[in-house]
Design a protein around this nucleic acid. Structure first.
Lengths: 243, 243
DNA sequence: ATTTTTCATTTGTCTTACAATTAAAAGTCT
DNA sequence: AGACTTTTAATTGTAAGACAAATGAAAAAT
């Protein structure tokens, strides 16, 4: 027991935790300036490089931003949706790719969450959202679309669907679920036939949302979910067969 | 244009990005050892402190772990659910607290997502999940429970409900939505009356899930959603009245 | 009054050094 | 020979000091 804060962790980790806690429970508020690195190193009785390592940890989580020059320093950062999206997506992508998640499980989670958006989307969708969905469907019909572009367009379509729910918190929460699937989807081999079927389902969903009819939209989504899972299974089976 | 990677960003940020990208697209795999700090500083032509700042950034995202000693070093970390949960919750909490989110919007998002769990929960709930839900309901009936403990128990109940869906990816995605609500919920003043009503609804949900009846469970959840929103509105109205 | 210059402050980076830790390698004893 | 101990080399953790670069405020000049 060295001091009140100590673990087996680094000094820089302890200091970062200390400051992070202060931010989280409001002792440091948005745009407030932290003491300078020199002052912090005195306060915590560590060297400046150690303080800097702590600050970089916080910067990596977008909790602070730094500015050089007189009256510069480290400031508590207002976490924007943009940054939150980014972190969400990074974390989700890594979680899925590193833990050999069953693709079925991931699909189930994603479609369950998207399902939750349908009712709201039917209520609130704007012309913009519909236009985006149509545009992506159109892109998907283009011949000679690479598998990668196909998947990217698929993700864009689903993002538009989620955004159509008109709830930024919901969009944020689902960003990870939708985007993180892309690498997994990329592993699936899409035949022209399967693409066609998916495009049809996308169109059905867009139509239903446009007409504000939640029930058929849900049905199409469920169908899409089922079909995606079956594609994944087929791909997986073929892969294991090769072994 | 200084070099291929350069922005207006720090060197340490650039290096972190470089390594992060390598991890994300699989050029560095789980448990692989990164070059030593000395080697990295040579490779990137920067000093060791700069490399260290980059590594700390990655450590802050749980992308690497470090170990001292001979044959120690920085290793690509397998992102565990535990760590992913933590980051998810931190990010979500900060996003909500820093952007004066309308509590209605947050509620809507959370309940919409929980709704998505109900069907699966009815299918797969285990005795464990049910026991946890019951235990939390029981705790909620205890008199003299502080507002904070009440909210914590509420969160625990909903987590159990989410976990009952038996999909770890779903649990992960919802962890942020459920936990990040706690600070917002804490702002609500719960009367004995309102607590009682919420407990009843919790019990209804638990019963329905136990009996594998999704429809009544959804109804109770919707009722809970509506009631929570009305409580939030009341609190907000009173607060504005004081002004 | 406006523009320019100076200047102090602060972060960004580098250099060097040493402490702490750790696992392998070498050595020692039975 | 085998088990135990010591040494050693590699590596991260921390410290101290120095200078560069940026930046906004204050002072000076126009």
């Amino acid at each position: 027991m060295k001091n009140s804060q100590s673990d087996a962790t680094d000094l820089s980790a302890q200091i970062a935790k200390n400051i992070r806690d202060a931010i989280i429970d409001g002792r440091l508020i948005v745009d407030e300036r932290l003491p300078s690195e020199a002052e912090l190193s005195e306060q915590f009785s560590v060297s400046r490089p150690t303080v800097r390592e702590a600050l970089k940890r916080l910067a990596a989580q977008s909790l602070i931003r730094t500015q050089r020059g007189a009256f510069g320093g480290a400031f508590v950062n207002r976490l924007s949706y943009q940054e939150a999206y980014g972190q969400q997506i990074t974390t989700s992508t890594l979680l899925l790719s590193m833990n050999d998640i069953n693709i079925d499980v991931a699909c189930e989670a994603r479609f369950a969450m998207e399902r939750a958006c349908i009712a709201l989307a039917c209520e609130r969708r704007t012309a913009d959202h519909l236009a985006t969905m149509r545009a992506e469907i159109h892109r998907q019909t283009q011949p000679g679309l690479s598998d990668e572009s196909w998947c990217a367009s698929d993700v864009a379509f689903h993002r538009a669907l989620v955004d159509a729910a008109g709830n930024p918190v919901l969009s944020y929460q689902l960003s990870g679920a939708v985007e993180a699937m892309q690498p997994l989807m990329n592993m699936i081999t899409y035949t022209a036939r399967s693409r066609e079927k998916i495009i049809d389902l996308h169109a059905e969903i867009a139509d239903s949302v446009e007409q504000k009819q939640a029930t058929p939209a849900l049905e199409s989504l469920d169908e899409l979910s089922k079909y995606t899972k079956s594609l994944a299974e087929t791909t997986l089976a073929k892969r294991q067969q090769k072994k």
